[in-house]
Amino acid sequence: MRVNLRVNGRPRQVDDVWEGESLLYVLRERMGLPGSKNACEQGECGSCSVRLDDVLVCSCLVAAGQAEGREVLTVEGLPGASAPSSALSSDPSGDSSEDDRSGELAPIQQAFIDAGAVQCGFCTPGLLVAADDLLRRDSDPSDADIREALSGNLCRCTGYEKILDAVRLAAARGETRRREGG
């Protein structure tokens, strides 16, 4: 079957989608967006997390046909679409040139790097999308809020502490940006 949807702000059309296929499969195998990871295909690990019409979901548990006419945001789209205050580039090192969007990072991505929250990186895309979703809803989350928001994402490497640091860091930087009238 044919499926039409918007992915990271762009209209996309895919053909020959099998009716039982997951949104995750369509993103990775038919659209060339391998950022969302496939680890369990049963909702346990969260590494396939995306936003579907602004709601955080496991894309492995959404049938492709259910995404017809809907808006999907994947980790690839985070730099362009993350938490409101983040539209401005937060990169203090200022390496990325203004017009080279591919080099730009969302604040949550920069915070993961700065906090050392990435080891093998397999869980990272899902955690970024989930953490960004939290900060969009709550710019100053408590530790308990962060733990709950990330409770659907497994990481086998980091032991989670650095990941929590990264989310706190992104929240604090967002706060600074807001105070400075960003």
Partner: peptide
């Protein structure tokens, strides 16, 4: 199929066609 959180697991694992 509503939320798909039961149905899709079964389809992904070929338990249901």
């Amino acid at each position: 199929i509503a939320g798909g959180t039961d149905v899709m697991v079964e389809i992904n694992f070929d338990l249901r066609r």
